[in-house]
Simulated scan of single mutants.
Amino acid sequence: MRALTSLLLFSFFSFPINAKSNSLSLYLWEDTLSPRVIQSWEQESNSILELSHFDNDDERSLLMMKNVQLPFDIVVLDNVSAQIYGDLGSFENLSDLPNRKHNAPRWNQACGDYAIPYFWGSVGIAYRKDLIASPPVTWGEFVNPPPEFNKKIGMINDSVESLLPIFYSLNLSPLTEDTQQIEAAFPKFEAFSKQVLTFEYVLSYVRSQHKQSQLQMALAYSGDQHSLNRTFGRDIWGFTIPKGETYIWLDCLAVSSHSTNKKMAKAFLNYISDPEIAAKNAIDIKAATPNLSALKQVPDWYKNDASLFPSPERIKNSIIDSELSAENISLRTKIINHIVKNHEAQY
C-alpha cells in the first residue's frame, strides 16, 4: 500500500483545495486531537477546524484514490508516506517551522523536511484487564491463544500490521522482503484468522458494535487503551508489548502544497508544536509526544506510563516503519484480502 499510496496521494494533491479563509480542514485518526486544543486554537485564531477521520492507512489511501479533490489542508500520515510525498512535491517544506526545534532529532529526521512528527508509539496488544489476568507475553501466545479466546480477538486490516504478529511468532521481521517467507506465513495466518472476531480497527469496532464485551483483546497501537477506556467510561483496558523486537509507528503532519490556506495551516502546526500546547494535547490524548520540551511540562503519571514510553532497552531493540517494494506490498495485499474476504464470509 505504501507504493500505491504514493501514486494516489500524488494524484490527490495535484488538485487545488478550495478551503474557506477562516477554516482549516484536517484528515486524521479519530480521537487524536484534544478538544481543549481545538477550542483554544479556534478562540485565538478566530478560525474553525474541520476534522475528518480514517481508521487505517489503507482506507485513507483508497478514499483519496476515489475522491481526488478531497478538501484537506493538513493530513496525518506515516513517516514513510511523508518522505515519499514530500519528494513528489505534494507537501510544503516545513524544515523552517520555528517550533520544530522542540522535537527529538530522531522523529524530525523520520518525518523529513515536508512533515513534522505528531505522536509516536509501539504496536502491541490491547486487552480487557478486568477479564484477562495474564495477557500474552509473546506474539506466539497471541496467534496461538487458548480455546476460551476463540472469536474474542481483534485484528487490523493493514499491509504491515496485519502480518506483524504472524511474522514475529515465526521469528521474522514484519518488514521482510523475502517472498518465500511471506508465502510460508500464509497457512499460519489463515489458521489464526479462524479465531479472530474482527479485522476492524479496535476503536472503530467498539464504537460501531452492540456486543462490545465480546472483544477481549486486539492488535492495537499504544495509546488505544486510553481511548477505549474513554469510550467505555471505565478503566478496564490495558496494553502490553510482547517480548522481542518493538515495532515503532510514527504519525507525521503535513500541509498540502495545493492548500489555499498554507499560511494558516503552518501557523496551526507551529501552534500545536509549542511545548505548552503539545503537552496539553499529549496529556488529553494520552499518546507519546515527540516534543522534548513538552515532556518537561507533563505530570509524572504520563512520563512513567510504560505503555506509552517503553524502557530504553525496548527502544534500543526496535525498528521503525520503513518503505517496502511494490512487489512486496502486492503479495501482502493479496494474502490479507484473501484472509479478510474468507473471514467476512463467515458472518
Score class of each variant (00 low, 15 high):
Val202Leu: 07
Lys20Cys: 06
Leu9Glu: 02
His53Val: 09
Ala82Leu: 09
Lys243Ser: 12
Ile329Ala: 14
Ser256Gln: 00
Asn56Asp: 14
Ala326Leu: 04
Asn261Thr: 14
Ala104Thr: 05
Phe192Ser: 10
Tyr118Gln: 11
Phe142Asn: 09
Ser193Trp: 06
Asn281Lys: 09
Tyr114Cys: 09
Ser259Val: 08
Phe13Gln: 00
Leu7Val: 01
Gln180Asp: 13
Lys280Asn: 13
Phe167Val: 02
Ala267Arg: 11
Gly124Asp: 02
Phe91Ile: 01
Asp284His: 10
Asp224Asn: 13
Arg230Tyr: 03
Leu70Arg: 05
Leu131Met: 08
Leu77His: 08
Val76Cys: 01
Lys194Tyr: 02
Glu30Gly: 15
Ala82Met: 10
Asn317Tyr: 07
Lys188Pro: 01
Trp120Ile: 08
Gln212Val: 10
Ala220Val: 01
Leu9Val: 00
Asn99Gly: 06
Glu177Thr: 00
Asp284Asn: 12
Ala279Phe: 07
Ser159Ala: 10
Ser159Leu: 08
Pro242Trp: 08
Asp284Leu: 02
Gln216Tyr: 01
Ser61Glu: 03
Gly154Asn: 03
Asp305Ser: 01
Leu24Cys: 04
Ala282Met: 09
Lys303Val: 10
Leu324Gly: 02
His258Lys: 15
Arg100Ser: 15
Trp41Ala: 12
Asp78Phe: 07
Glu344His: 14
Ala288Tyr: 02
Ile241Gly: 00
Ile315Trp: 06
Lys129Pro: 00
Pro275Asn: 14
Ser61Cys: 07
Ala191Thr: 12
Arg234Val: 05
Ala110Gln: 14
Glu344Pro: 01
Pro105Gly: 11
Asp300Trp: 07
Arg36Cys: 10
Leu170Val: 02
Leu164His: 02
Leu253Ala: 14
Phe142Leu: 13
Leu164Cys: 00
Glu30Leu: 12
Ser162Pro: 04
Ala110Val: 06
Leu163Lys: 03
Leu253Cys: 08
Phe186Asp: 03
Ile320Pro: 04
Thr179His: 05
Ser330Ala: 14
Thr240Met: 05
Lys152Trp: 02
Thr5Pro: 00
Ser11Ile: 00
